[in-house]
Design a protein around this nucleic acid. Structure first.
Length: 587
RNA sequence: GCCAGCGUAGCUCAGUGGUAGAGCAGCGGUUUCGUAAACCGCUGGUCAAGAGUUCGACUCUCUUCGCUGGCUCCA
């Protein structure tokens, strides 16, 4: 995490004050408004209101104009300290404020800030006067539950951004605009990676041939790397009987996210939301000895989860997904090494993809969720959480800790990334499971001939194909390394008479498993180059009279760089080498 | 799921109550061209779906579906 500077603090204070100014503006426009909270956030601020009518985007310029007046008047912010009782009287008509007041410690002095006609319960600090807010813009309105709880009333939130100069604000707005060009939904359509179809259903992507090529490559990578790390691969069905998911604990802990069951001949079947119960069956298919452990069972398993409609987001949040899944069954003694082995596997993958901007999060349980979202075994929660902490510390892997984010069966290390539009996602995960072995009656025979429960590590370093490709689209802005690029080489014949030579080159490349296509349109060379550039194809090979005569190829890289004339064999060797090494370079 | 907004051709978008438009893409033709957009022509839409108001609805109202931005939730 970055150290906060004096400038950061000043900016945060200014943003917080901007939210108060917005609240004052809203108060003057909507006299009956009730106020909830209005903090500073990254790049700006928001305030939650309970208003007599819903806001529309047309309201924002009106509120902005009013804020402009308040800022121009340079009204001072005045801090007052009052007792809880005084606060109750001052905010008698403000139910949300009263709720907050009642939760503050009984004897503590409360502070309020007044600017103009607006008074707010607030710890502060604030700017001296409203004129210190220099550059702001209201950017959107949203619904937000009071206290972030879906059982509480929904309030109306207005988001704004604020900076200390007009230039900084403009830059920020330009960055937001730029980010839209990196959005995987836009790139995915332009590069023909995937589509959604209304008749197929929300959250159910269709992979186009270009996307298909990519997931084949990612899967090949996983198989290569995981083979080296001692994983064995299995295949399991997409659905199973209800009893299986009862034993595993998915019913009821995970039922909300599962597609409803289908019933045939009196038996209920569920489509699997995770692969674990089926892998556990494979573990349990014979008597396991301590000599079999650790057993690492891997599968690119297809799962379906009924995510709520409003939670779907392109490929980053879908309802059908293929997971880079594996379950590692090990003894408690082996845990440390296995857990960290998975972490180093992450790092190995991330190096290949040049993934640098991520952070690891230890997600732990919260006692309030025991028996609801978490299996009810407080001692084991604490024990396994400590084991994970120790494994991470022993190997000096930096992480931060967040409560109430665990899986229902145990704590986990999640790898968090940010999407182009700033949303945070878990890209990869490494989870400890102390619950399912018991529930599914998994055991092995230890050195002493006694039965023992294995610990289970659930891990998915490459997450799901859906989220991973979505992430890669944004990460590379569509310009994939050669081994991943859906089309690796586009051959561009200058005129029809060069088609034959181009065709021979095409079959030579294809015989070396290089994904190649010829642009045989009756177009000039320029538009063909342009087309290949737009498709972000790494290599463009121009074939004209010169090449045919000399028996060479003329190679243009996606970067715009032109390679010296070379034989087609030399070119094929270069491309094959780059692909085999999964390098991010083009030459 | 909740709040708000949006849905017009494959894509990007005009079109405010009087018989649906552009650019790109696609198709046909001319052109055979040297490193990011040649020229001419053509095709293409139940204006998301359904109901209502109206002499008349892409346009107004309601319902449903989908998408977008948030909230909640998550690989």
């Amino acid at each position: 995490m970055v150290n906060r500077t004096v400038e950061d603090e000043k900016l945060e204070t200014m943003r917080h004050s901007a939210s108060h100014i917005m609240a004052e503006a809203v108060q003057s426009i909507f006299p009956g408004a009730k106020f909830a909270i209005g903090p500073a956030i990254e790049n700006g601020f928001y305030y939650d209101f309970d208003l007599p009518r819903p806001l529309t985007p047309d309201d924002l310029p009106v509120i902005e104009a009013k804020m402009g007046e308040i800022i121009a008047s340079n009204t001072p912010f005045i801090r007052e300290e009052i007792t809880r009782e005084e606060a109750r009287q001052l905010f008698a008509a403000q139910p949300y404020k009263l709720e907050l007041i009642n939760e503050l410690p009984e004897n503590e002095k409360l502070s309020v800030y007044r600017q103009g006609s607006f008074l707010d319960l607030c710890r502060g600090p604030h700017v001296k006067a409203s004129g210190e807010v220099k550059a702001f813009k209201l950017i959107n309105i949203a619904g937000a539950y009071w206290r972030g709880d879906e059982h509480q009333p929904m309030l109306q939130r207005i988001y704004g951004v604020a900076f200390d100069t007009r230039e900084a604000l403009e830059e920020h707005l330009a960055r937001l605009e730029e980010a839209k060009n990196r959005d995987h939904r836009k790139l995915g359509r332009e590069l023909e990676i995937f589509i959604f179809d209304d008749e197929v259903g929300p959250g159910l992507p269709l992979w186009l041939p270009n996307g298909g090529a990519m997931i084949e490559e990612i899967e090949r990578l996983a198989k290569d790397v995981e083979f080296e790390h001692g994983y064995v691969r299995v295949k399991t069905p997409h659905l199973a009987k209800e009893d299986l998911f009862k034993h595993s604990g998915h019913l009821p802990y995970y039922a909300e996210s599962m597609y409803p069951p289908m019933e045939l001949e009196g038996v209920r079947y569920y489509i699997k939301p995770m692969n674990c119960p089926l892998h556990h069956k494979i573990f349990a298919s014979k008597t396991r000895s301590y000599r079999d452990l650790p057993l690492r069972i891997a599968e690119y398993g297809t799962c379906y989860r009924y995510e709520k409609s409003g939670e779907l987001l392109g490929l980053l949040r879908v309802r059908s997904m293929q997971m880079n899944d594996s379950h590692i069954y090990c003894s408690e003694k082996q845990f440390d090494q296995e857990f960290v082995g998975v972490i180093s596997l992450y790092l190995e993958y991330f190096k290949i993809f040049g993934i640098k901007e991520y952070y690891m999060r230890l997600s732990t349980h919260h006692p309030n969720g025991l028996g609801k979202k978490y299996v009810n075994n407080p001692e084991l929660w604490l024990k396994t959480e400590a084991m994970v902490r120790q494994a991470m510390n022993n190997h000096n892997v930096p992480y931060y800790e967040v409560a109430d984010e665990a899986a229902f069966y145990g704590p986990k290390i999640d790898v968090q990334i940010k999407s182009a539009i700033g949303k945070e996602f878990t890209l990869a995960t490494n989870q400890v499971d102390f619950a399912q072995a018991e529930r599914c009656d998994l055991k092995f025979v230890n050195e002493k001939g006694e039965e023992e429960r294995p610990l289970i590590i659930h891990r998915a370093p490459l997450g799901t194909h859906e989220r991973f490709v979505g992430f890669l689209l944004e990460h590379y802005a569509g310009a994939f390394p050669v081994w991943l690029a859906p089309v690796q080489v586009t051959i561009i014949p200058v005129a029809d008479r060069h088609l034959e030579y181009a065709g021979r080159l095409e079959s030579d490349l294809r015989s070396r498993d290089i994904r190649v296509k010829i642009d045989a349109r009756s177009e000039r060379m320029n538009p063909k180059i342009r087309q290949a550039q737009l498709e972000k194809v790494p290599y463009m090979v121009v074939i004209g009279d010169k090449e045919v005569e000399a028996g060479t190829v003329s190679v243009r890289l996606r970067s715009g760089e032109q390679l010296p004339p070379q034989s087609s064999d030399a070119f094929i060797e270069t491309v094959s080498r780059i692909i085999a090494s999964r390098s991010q370079d083009l030459k």
